[in-house]
Each structure stands twice: as C-alpha cells, then as structure tokens.
C-alpha cells in the first residue's frame, strides 16, 4: 500500500512540518462514500505513517497507538499541514503528530500519539 502520489501529494517539506494535498480522485472514494467523498480515517493514518517514514528514512510499522483522535473530516482537495515530533527510544520511535489546515492550525483534523518500530 503506497499512498504518496495516489491519495496525497507533498507540496512542501520543511523541518518538522510537511504541507500536503489530498488528491481529487482515488479508487477508495467510489465506495467511501458514493457521491460524498471522505478520506477514510485509516488512510489518513497511513499517510501519516508514510510521512514519518520519509522523515526517518526507513520502513516503519505501528507497534501501538496510545491515542488517535480524528477530530474532523479530511476530504479530497484539502491542503493540510502535518507537524511531527519524533523521539527515538531504543529501536522504537515515539511519534506525536497533528494534522491541521495548512493555513489555519486551529482547524485540527487528526491528532496522533503512537509508537512505531
């Protein structure tokens, strides 16, 4: 499953934050939901995982999710800003991430506190 280029595109990658845009079309929107495209929460989560992989330069898997709050809908065309705080602990990575509107950080879409291996 690779989402970069099909589900979203990276517009700008600088320091702790990545600005990205959800692509207008993706096969998943045919079913989710017909006539009302909404990005499935688990794919938004997959997108964040890929961005953490991009930042750390290696393939990662979730080992645990302490909390993941899907505060508001993500839709095709949205331009969003992903802010990541990554801490190494032995082999594992503790990641705190928040996904907000690119222009408005009050517009919270998703907040994640997870561990990757």
């Amino acid at each position: 499953m690779k989402l970069n280029g099909t589900l979203y595109q990276i517009l700008q990658d600088e320091g702790a934050a990545i600005t990205l845009q959800l692509c207008d079309s993706h096969p998943v929107y045919e079913g989710h939901f017909p006539g009302m495209p909404i990005t499935p929460g688990v794919l938004t989560l997959g997108m964040i995982r890929e961005c953490v992989e991009l930042r750390t330069g290696r393939a990662l898997r979730f080992s645990s999710i302490k909390s993941c709050r899907l505060a508001a809908m993500v839709r095709p065309g949205d331009v969003l800003k992903l802010t990541m705080d990554i801490t190494r602990e032995g082999d594992s990575l503790k990641v705190k991430a928040s996904l907000t509107g690119a222009e408005n950080e009050e517009d919270l879409r998703l907040q994640l506190d997870a561990e990757f291996l």
Partner: peptide, 17 residues
C-alpha cells in the same frame, strides 16, 4: 446511517501481521 471512526485508543499490534 453512515459512521466514522472518532478515535482509536490503546491499540497494540503484535507481529507478524
């Protein structure tokens, strides 16, 4: 009606998947 994931907590994954 349509349903959405609101949040996920205390998820623990044990490989192999």
């Amino acid at each position: 009606t349509l349903g959405y994931i609101g949040d996920i907590k205390r998820a623990v994954f044990t490989p192999p998947m």
